[in-house]
Simulated scan of single mutants.
Amino acid sequence: MRFQDHFSRQASTYAQYRPSYPEDLFDWLACQASRRGLAWDVATGSGQSAVALAQRFTEVIATEPSAAQLANAARRPNINYRQEPAERASLADGSADLITVAQALHWFDLPAFLTEAARVLRPGGVLAVWCYELFSVDADIDAIVADYYHGTVGPYWPPERRWLEQGYAGLALPYASLATPAFTMALDWNLDMLLGYLASWSATQRYRDERQHDPLPEIRNRLAAAWGEPAHTRRINWPLTVQACRKPA
């Protein structure tokens, strides 16, 4: 399966504006792992999850097929970044205590990745995947964003996006599922931060490429009318879905 590169062109924007995941998610993952030696963060992007895992595990190997994404990744002494696909990793058999996939599983050749994860995960180790859906702010802003998401750039989303829209419903993990608590994913952003996030969307980039036109100025004007003072921060909420399973010991 050829690597689907939807983010290299806007890698620096992606690194700056992609939302971070809640700390209690990583606390929970660390508690589920019976050992905290090695965590493998798959399709790490610019390393949002890898950095959080590095605070809780002795070593993190973070793999990512995009060189541009890795060039923008946050460095830590115990993070080993490797440019390689999810389906063919250079990790040793049975070496990982935890494998994580954040907002990326829908891009994989799933059977090939699950085979590779089974090889790399040690007995008793945990595989965890998660995704987030379209954010919400308030009724007025949500309506404008929904029109942009479904209307303006709607035709430019890749078909794999449907997995996020359904919160990975129907995903079959290879081992017995772990009961996962509810996690809250929220950040306080001003208008420019929100627009930076919209700029990081793959559909925004594809719209620009195919139509030779930037759709963001128009939505900025619409959002500004509903937002108020642009520097004012508002709470941005994303529905976060987490699924996890444990390999038999």
Rank of each mutant, 00 (worst) to 15 (best):
residue 119 R to A: 08
residue 86 A to M: 03
residue 57 F to D: 11
residue 89 A to R: 07
residue 89 A to D: 03
residue 59 E to C: 05
residue 128 A to P: 02
residue 83 Q to M: 08
residue 113 F to K: 11
residue 108 F to T: 03
residue 98 L to I: 08
residue 116 E to Y: 07
residue 99 I to Q: 07
residue 90 S to Y: 01
residue 121 L to T: 12
residue 71 A to Y: 01
residue 93 D to C: 07
residue 120 V to M: 03
residue 102 A to Q: 03
residue 75 R to W: 06
residue 96 A to M: 07
residue 111 P to I: 14
residue 111 P to R: 07
residue 133 E to T: 13
residue 63 T to G: 11
residue 77 P to E: 08
residue 113 F to W: 13
residue 132 Y to L: 00
residue 100 T to H: 11
residue 83 Q to H: 03
residue 104 A to C: 08
residue 93 D to G: 09
residue 89 A to V: 12
residue 130 W to P: 06
residue 59 E to H: 11
residue 79 I to N: 00
residue 111 P to T: 13
residue 74 A to R: 05
residue 90 S to N: 13
residue 87 E to H: 07
residue 59 E to M: 02
residue 86 A to H: 01
residue 73 A to K: 01
residue 55 Q to E: 15
residue 110 L to C: 01
residue 96 A to G: 12
residue 128 A to I: 13
residue 94 G to K: 15
residue 97 D to R: 10
residue 66 S to C: 08
residue 130 W to L: 11
residue 104 A to Y: 05
residue 58 T to D: 06
residue 90 S to P: 02
residue 101 V to D: 00
residue 115 T to I: 09
residue 63 T to R: 10
residue 79 I to V: 13
residue 94 G to F: 07
residue 101 V to L: 09
residue 92 A to E: 15
residue 107 W to N: 02
residue 76 R to Y: 02
residue 83 Q to W: 00
residue 132 Y to H: 10
residue 59 E to L: 12
residue 132 Y to M: 09
residue 94 G to I: 09
residue 119 R to F: 05
residue 70 L to P: 03
residue 65 P to F: 14
residue 119 R to H: 08
residue 97 D to V: 11
residue 125 G to S: 12
residue 56 R to M: 13
residue 116 E to F: 05
residue 110 L to Y: 12
residue 57 F to Q: 12
residue 130 W to R: 08
residue 110 L to F: 05
residue 128 A to F: 02
residue 89 A to K: 01
residue 68 A to W: 00
residue 119 R to Q: 11
residue 89 A to C: 13
residue 69 Q to T: 02
residue 84 E to R: 00
residue 66 S to E: 07
residue 127 L to T: 03
residue 98 L to C: 13
